[in-house]
């Protein structure tokens, strides 16, 4: 089943602008939600003043503040790599967002193997953290970069295996067709894979409880220690863009994307709502669990997640052979 090919230059530009707009708005929305949800879970109010109504403009104000700050490159740093790293961390998520379908027709760049595409793009983004950690010429940064390399190597495998299981179930690598084929009973059939995917995605994003690489209280934000101003903001933005990409991917792979009441007409709203619910879950994980230690991280990945993902793959294969 081949996707349509876009050839009109104007259409290409319009689609690119659309993705860029979503890329700039959705992470801010998730960030603001994190401020407020986390605050209320901890018995606080969170930002209340910026913008008037419940501090809705807090992140806009933060952005303005970051722009005004001085952009410092440490004297001992490797200048070119140091300055280029934030772009390497940020752009892949923008590219990944372009191929995630919100409904069968609402997708910026239709591709055949979009599930693999998203995984490949996010795998490239990881390099930004490593480049930042090495080029900073700071021992905390280097420690953080080493921790993130170890963590990302360990969690990449279960993530890919979990996605492979859904692809096997639907018999395609296209996210659009996966969500079209999705049935409600897949919720149970693919449940172990979904859990593996969620845990591995949170670890891949280096979000608490898997934030050992950036542990602010021991290695002072790890790879990002030396960054200031806009470049630091880009790293933060890439974290929240990563949450958006992983949440939408989870919604499309495991929750049926646009399927729901009136899915024919307002399917994209369903995808966004499901993705938003997953994002809130990821925020909740941060509040609920303390940080895992390095050896616990590796143990969880290799002794729990990888076997679980392999078992899920076997269960899926048996299901596919039996029911088709």
């Amino acid at each position: 089943m081949n996707e349509v090919v876009i050839t009109q230059p104007l259409e290409v530009v319009l689609r690119a602008v659309g993705v860029l707009a979503a890329f700039l708005v959705l992470p801010l929305l998730v960030g603001q939600t994190e401020h407020k949800v986390m605050a209320h879970m901890q018995g606080r109010l969170g930002p209340m003043y910026a913008g008037g109504f419940h501090g809705w403009a807090q992140l806009v104000a933060d952005g303005v503040k970051f722009v005004q700050k001085e952009d410092i490159t440490p004297a001992a740093a490797d200048r070119s790599v140091f300055r280029f790293a934030p772009a390497v961390a940020l752009v892949p998520y923008l590219v990944a967002l372009a191929v995630i379908p919100l409904s069968p027709s609402v997708v910026a760049a239709p591709t055949n193997a979009s599930a693999v595409f998203v995984l490949a793009a996010t795998a490239v983004g990881i390099l930004g953290t490593l480049m930042a950690g090495w080029a900073s010429a700071n021992k905390y940064s280097l420690l953080g970069a080493m921790r993130s390399a170890a963590q990302l190597l360990a969690y990449e495998l279960p993530l890919v295996l979990a996605v492979a299981s859904v692809c096997l179930a639907a018999g395609t690598l296209s996210l659009r067709v996966i969500a079209l084929d999705w049935q409600p009973w897949w919720l149970l059939w693919q449940l172990p894979g979904a859990i593996v995917f969620l845990v591995a995605a949170v670890a891949e994003l280096q979000r608490p409880p898997f934030d050992m690489p950036v542990a602010d209280s021991e290695i002072v934000f790890g790879p990002y220690t030396e960054y200031t101003g806009l470049r630091f903001a880009f790293f933060l933005l890439s974290e929240y863009a990563g949450i958006v990409v992983m949440s939408l991917l989870f919604a499309v792979l495991y929750l049926g994307g646009w399927q729901g009441p009136w899915g024919e007409q307002v399917g994209w709203i369903w995808t966004l709502l499901k993705g938003f619910a997953v994002a809130v879950l990821i925020i909740w994980l941060r509040v609920a669990w303390p940080r895992l230690r390095e050896d616990q991280l590796q143990r969880l990945a290799w002794l729990v997640l990888v076997p679980m993902a392999l078992a899920q793959l076997a269960v899926t294969a048996v299901g596919v052979v039996m029911f088709e």
Binding site: A113, L119, A120, A123, I126, L127, M146, A150, L173
Partner: peptide
Amino acid sequence: EFVALVQLLVYVGAIVVLVLFALML
């Protein structure tokens, strides 16, 4: 397309990360 994506996923996402990790270690 698929070979290109696997090339990115395996070589850039895993092999080079492993190389960088070994260098830093």
